[in-house]
């Protein structure tokens, strides 16, 4: 099954990944310079507004990654030919998503400390994000369970689809729970932030730049997963062949 889809490459880089990589460097360089130097400080939030140029794009990528994981898992489960390519995309996307989710929570906490005066508020969005992080850490743990590659793919695809059921329930219960309690005291987290044109453009550039980082990482990661699966498979095949040769010689 796996050997049929054996790749013709020995590294994970291609012409396409190099183009994406160069574009990523250009856009991210602009975001860093514009975010730190060109854009003004916010009237209310001061210099802490610059955290937004990392926080908002990383949150966007984190949620996008988990949507990609769910869609790829659904394709693996429901497609007639259970292609392991979908499983690898799902796994790679979840790994990248967890990384960006951690960045989102850390930058959000730093911003919260400066704006609300506290690292953490039991805000529904924050709480749901934290639960999403733990859920996908569990998903990654399931991917590392013993068993064949096909078992890994089936189990993790089911867990990813169950997470799609779970997250709305968690979010709704936390929203309902918080509606009975006090809200953020210094600045309402749902409050609109009015931005000037350059700030908005830098934020948009950040979203584009982080999306390119996401695409670049997914392309490389799913290929390293394929190479790893092939290495495991060839090791197993070699061991079986060695045992067969032993039995023939005996």
């Amino acid at each position: 099954m796996l050997s049929q889809s054996a790749p013709k490459f020995s590294s994970t880089g291609t012409q396409a990944t190099r183009i994406v990589g160069v574009l990523t460097i250009v856009v991210m360089t602009w975001v860093v310079i514009s975010g730190l130097v060109f854009t003004p400080a916010d009237v209310v939030q001061g210099e802490s507004v610059r955290i937004m140029y990392v926080h908002v794009p990383s949150a966007w990528i984190a949620y996008l990654a988990f949507i990609v994981t769910a869609i790829a898992s659904a394709f693996y489960i429901f497609a007639k030919r259970h292609s392991l390519g979908f499983d690898r995309v799902a796994g790679a996307s979840a790994e990248v998503g967890v990384m960006f989710m951690v960045i989102t929570l850390v930058t959000g906490s730093l911003w919260g400390r400066l704006t609300w005066g506290e690292f953490w508020q039991w805000d529904p969005r924050l709480t749901t994000t934290a639960f999403l992080l733990v859920t996908y850490i569990g998903y990654l743990a399931v991917r590392r369970l013993d068993g064949s590659i096909e078992q890994r793919a089936r189990r993790s695809a089911v867990i990813a689809l169950l997470a799609v059921l779970e997250i709305p329930l968690v979010h709704f219960s936390v929203v309902f729970w918080r509606s009975l309690h006090q809200r953020a005291t210094i600045l309402d987290p749902n409050g609109d932030v009015k931005m000037d044109g350059l700030m908005l453009f830098t934020l948009f550039s950040g979203v584009v730049g982080f999306t390119l980082v996401f695409v670049w990482l997914i392309l490389h990661r799913q290929r390293t997963m394929l190479l790893s699966d092939l290495a495991n498979q060839s090791g197993l095949d070699a061991a079986i062949l060695a045992r067969q040769n032993e039995s023939v010689s005996n």
Binding site: G138, V142, L145, E166, V170, F172
Partner: peptide, 23 residues
């Protein structure tokens, strides 16, 4: 059922179940 018969099921089960049972 998912963790049955797997290594490390004692720690994996709470990790998977706790976020799900939060609601």
């Amino acid at each position: 059922g998912l963790t049955a018969g797997t290594n490390g099921r004692e720690t994996l089960l709470p990790l998977l179940l706790l976020p799900v049972v939060a609601p």
